[in-house]
Simulated scan of single mutants.
Amino acid sequence: MKDEWFRTWFDTDYYHILYNHRDDKEAREFIDALLSFLKPVNGSTFLDVACGRGRHSLQLSERGYPTVGIDLSANSISFAKQQECDRLRYNVRDIREPFECGTFHFALNLFTSFGYFDSIAEHLTALRNIHSALEPNGIFVLDFLNRNFVSQNSDVKKIPLGNLHFTTSKEIVGAHITKKITVQDGDIKETYREQVLAFSHDELIDLISQAGFNILSVHGNYQMETFEQYHPRVIIIAQKK
């Protein structure tokens, strides 16, 4: 098997401790802004692609929308399943493999849950699987890092969390945006990495278009402001052709 960093890092306790600050309040505020923009009708169905522990899926289901979350991490899905109800379910799934077709009104891929794979072809396959999962005219939302913002804002962060001490750094190395994470856990020191292809705004739009979508709008932050090059995010709203 290829060295796919996400297969190990996402199943560690350290990953969930580090990102625990990504709390329900942040998820609630982003989902509120997104729903205000998308204006889904009652009963609209959502697919949360690469959902992690399901913080966005949970917010959607609590607003009455039937939601399915999928993720490669068995650890994350095991945790998320504690939240399941009639409107919310979770499955372990690799987005490079086909899943339910023509089922959903909306598909979301949030918090830079894209760009993990080695080849452009794998990413295009993932996008086409998302396209197939949507009903005709269904809406896809992709939330990714803005490469320009990363290139101008590389820094080192030291994050003490209880008895653990994290050091993170993010930079563009070749074709990738790479985040190095060092964990000091008592006498134990562990190093992990997160790495995504450094897609530009234009490259993301081109790839999503190739997968069979029309681009409706592009936004630059979680307040859904129209995208500018200095914004931290690239949030693309697209519609299935």
Rank of each mutant, 00 (worst) to 15 (best):
I177Y: 03
F30G: 00
Q152Y: 04
R53V: 12
S154G: 15
T178H: 09
I17S: 09
W5N: 02
D48W: 01
E203C: 05
Q152E: 07
S119H: 07
E29I: 15
E194W: 08
T67V: 08
R63F: 05
E122A: 11
G43C: 04
R96C: 09
G43E: 00
H131I: 03
N146F: 11
R53S: 11
R63S: 02
I95A: 12
L216S: 00
F46V: 13
D143H: 12
I159F: 04
F199W: 05
S119R: 10
R7M: 04
Q82I: 02
S132E: 02
A74G: 12
E84S: 13
I237F: 03
L124P: 08
P136A: 09
V49C: 12
F144V: 11
E4W: 09
S154K: 07
V183P: 13
T103F: 04
T182C: 03
A107C: 06
K170G: 09
E135K: 15
L207G: 05
R128H: 09
S61N: 04
F213W: 08
F79E: 00
E228Q: 10
T226G: 01
C101Q: 14
D48G: 12
M224V: 01
N91I: 10
V150M: 14
S73A: 01
D48V: 13
F117R: 03
I172D: 05
H201N: 05
